[in-house]
Amino acid sequence: MTLTLVKAWNAAKDRLKNVQIDQPAIDARLLLEVAADVTRTDIITDPYRVLTEAQMATLDDFLNRRARREPVSHIIGRKGFWKILLQVNKHVLTPRPETEVIVDEVLKAFPEQMPFNMLDLGVGSGTILLAVLAERPAAKGLGVDVSEEALAVARENAANLDLAGRTALLRGDWTNGLGDDSFDLVVSNPPYIATEVIDTLEPEVRDHEPRLALDGGPDGLDAYRVLAGEILRVLKPGAMFAVEIGYDQSQAVEDLFRQAGAQDVRTIKDLSVNDRVVTGTK
């Protein structure tokens, strides 16, 4: 059976819709683009291009995996974030639009040609660190993660984005071994989901995201209890921090940073009008 791009897309959409996948049209298009080695423009301008047998087999495999609720980003191995494209796999969190709030706040605070030294704690795939460095050519950054597998992904992304020369990556436990007053900026998207909540999450997250990057302890706040004091320790006087939080954690996280001595502490909402980032200064 011959299958054209438009027929393949429509069939894939229907197949994903039948198993209650959210946004089946978008997922089907993304999977088709990779399986058939085409772009979105190709699908629109050359809809009757015929897929090869190998491409059809690859698409079928992709759709089977998506039907089992494997994230699209894991299937195709990449995810867009801010203005960059990142390689991702099962060892790192899939970048989410909500995290762009941190990038937006950082770029507002640091003019384009301003040199600064930033630290990303729990760097994962390099999401925040590399998005900022891509926009700020005078900046340098250090990313720390406890997972060597995550650091391998971040290294690949830094190299792909031509940012390896301004990016250092270190395996470590948060700020252990880092000197006082070392950074102009510290960012973090730590694990913040309460342990008992994880098993109630959608299968794409519960079954496929690294639990190490999700589990924030009994109340979701374990990481912040460590980070509040440690972030302020490694920040230079007057320097800025920004950490992602869960939608219901604003007051608790703000209190932890104020108790540690932070100034100008406030919470920023995401585009869904949920509390998303706590920021402040030393």
Score class of each variant (00 low, 15 high):
P237S: 09
R266N: 10
D264G: 11
R225H: 12
L212T: 14
T279D: 01
A262K: 08
A242Q: 05
Y247R: 00
G246A: 01
T267C: 15
A262V: 05
A239L: 07
A260P: 15
V253S: 09
R266G: 10
A260V: 13
D264K: 12
A242D: 07
G246P: 03
V273P: 00
T279R: 11
R225C: 06
R276P: 12
D264R: 13
A260E: 13
V265Q: 08
L235G: 05
V273E: 15
G238T: 01
A260G: 15
R266F: 08
M240W: 13
K269R: 14
D275E: 14
A213F: 11
Q249Y: 01
Y224M: 01
R276V: 14
V243C: 08
R258H: 11
I245E: 07
D275V: 00
Q249T: 05
S250F: 01
V253P: 10
Q263A: 15
L221K: 05
V265Y: 05
F241N: 02
L221G: 07
L227G: 12
R276Y: 10
G238V: 01
Q263Y: 13
G216V: 10
R276F: 10
P237I: 01
V278A: 02
R258W: 01
D219N: 14
V234E: 06
L227Q: 10
D264N: 15
L221Q: 05
L212G: 02
L212K: 06
L221A: 04
I231Y: 02
V253A: 04
A239P: 09
D248R: 10
I245Q: 06
F257N: 04
V277W: 06
V273K: 15
V234K: 11
D248E: 15
Q263K: 15
A262D: 03
A239D: 11
Q249M: 07
Y224R: 00
Q249D: 04
E244A: 04
Y224E: 00
D248V: 05
A239M: 02
L256W: 11
R233T: 12
A223R: 07
L221W: 00
F257P: 01
L212R: 04
A252Y: 10
F257S: 02
V253K: 05
P237V: 06
A242L: 13
V273M: 08
A252C: 12
A239N: 05
L235E: 06
V278Y: 00
E244W: 00
M240V: 06
V226A: 06
A242K: 08
Q263M: 14
G238F: 11
E230Y: 02
M240H: 14
L212M: 12
Q263L: 15
R225T: 03
Q263R: 15
G217I: 09
D219L: 07
F241D: 02
D248K: 15
E230T: 03
R258F: 00
L256A: 10
R258G: 07
Q263C: 11
V265P: 09
L235H: 04
V253N: 11
K236Q: 08
F257Y: 14
L214K: 11
A260Y: 13
I268K: 14
R225Q: 11
T267F: 06
L271G: 00
R258I: 14
V243W: 02
R225L: 05
D215F: 00
Q259V: 12
V234I: 06
V273I: 07
D275K: 01
D219W: 05
R233F: 09
I245H: 06
V243N: 03
A262M: 04
A260F: 13
